[in-house]
Write a protein that binds this DNA or RNA. Structure first.
Lengths: 224, 224
DNA sequence: AAAATAGTGTCTGTCAGACAGTATGGA
DNA sequence: TCCATACTGTCTGACAGACACTATTTT
């Protein structure tokens, strides 16, 4: 039995954040149907009531269908709903945000990776959604290990610090950062694995990987 | 033009949290129609696409219609959506949570105020929604002025500390608490207004009210 | 040895927790 | 004066920021 009320459209939109050449960026796909056909926008899709068990399932399906990617971190961001955000009618978009290690643009399939700073205006209210996703990442990064999901398999502590600095937009003290990371223990050194500096000269750096704890909130704010 | 896909039901549910005799409690209303007719549940309602401008408008309308109350603080909590949460079909519930000063039960209109600890099982997935709202309040309270929205017009600093302690479920040091509150400055003393101790004996306490800043995040975690 | 990069040790200012002390009222 | 409650001052341990120092590699 359905309700007597006309129901809004129900969609899920994804904000896929990644680090492209060390710069925080978002994955966009070219729309293959109206409205805004041919424009770059967040990957999204309708909830399929026959197919999807719940909203998280919709998010995973959309991610798979639109990009073929799998995100190590996927979190519900916020729900945008109103009369004027989509010309097709009153619509609800449940936005999810995901973090991925560096992913390549794929022009064949209409996928572009754009820096989040200086992003052009996007269709619908997608600009606002991206803004909110970035704000959430920045906010959580100052007191959690979230940014590790932007790292590749193996990385050095200086790599990790650099990612934190990029995400937070401010320099961090080397000693304090390492003290904190060591104390929290969500990454672990890989025994015997090192990486030589690019110039050749200099002490090789210990390589790290994600530990068992993975996502962790720090007890206190980690920095300013 | 509508979508080709069948759309899920779209509802908004409200978690109204309040302090009843100093105990964190939630407002529930008796359902006046199936499913679960006659049972206590979160006040909620369908999105009315003709009437409501956006989701926040739906939330405010439902609050008004179901309780006649106005909430000084209303925030989107999380969106629950899936096939089995409502027997009427695939449904989406955008949950909002609100904070209110002490409100009275209203059996005439089917409204009850129940303590959040030891709550009986609620219809749909409402128990989970309440849980999440309480978790959000607890989480934010340790580093923000959120609990002030649970306070009446006038209150003492000891009242405020007591509310923080109730919400966080742990005692706080008097000196540290006052230092922090004073530094943050989201409440202000009301000149010349004091409240005498209940027993009659003892120094009267300065009365405070919300200041201009109201909602504020602290720089650091306020306590363990 | 020099240079370059990785990693550690230590000082210090800040601040929350603890708690003792002062202030102000009624009985 | 005593008691009860409200409020304040100060000591201290923990810790983040700063930064100098040691370590390890290639040239």
């Amino acid at each position: 039995m359905k309700s007597d009320y006309p129901t809004p459209l129900a969609t899920v939109d994804l904000v896929l954040l990644t680090l492209r050449d060390g710069v925080l960026s978002v994955a966009l796909v070219r729309r293959d149907r109206p409205p805004f056909e041919g424009r770059l926008a967040l990957p999204g899709g309708f909830v399929h009531v026959e197919e999807d068990e719940d909203l998280a399932a919709t998010a995973r399906r959309v991610l798979r269908e639109k990009t073929g990617l799998v995100a190590p971190y996927l979190e519900q961001l916020y729900t945008f709903g109103g009369r004027n955000r989509d010309e097709r009618g009153w619509s609800i978009s449940v936005a999810y945000f995901a973090l991925l290690p560096d992913i390549a643009p794929d022009p064949e399939n209409g996928r572009a990776i754009l820096e989040v700073d200086g992003l052009p205006h996007l269709p619908f209210d997608h600009s606002r959604i991206v803004e909110q996703a970035v704000a959430r990442l920045r906010g959580k990064s100052s007191y959690s290990s979230l940014p590790v999901y932007l790292m590749p398999e193996r990385f050095t502590l200086d790599d990790l610090q650099s990612v934190y600095e990029r995400v937070l937009g401010q320099p961090l003290d080397r000693g304090s950062f390492r003290r904190q990371i060591d104390f929290q223990g969500f990454v672990e050194p890989v025994p015997g694995e090192f990486r030589r500096p690019e110039g050749g000269r200099g002490r090789p750096a210990q390589l790290y990987r994600l530990g068992a704890k993975r996502l962790k909130e720090f007890g206190r704010r980690m920095l300013a």
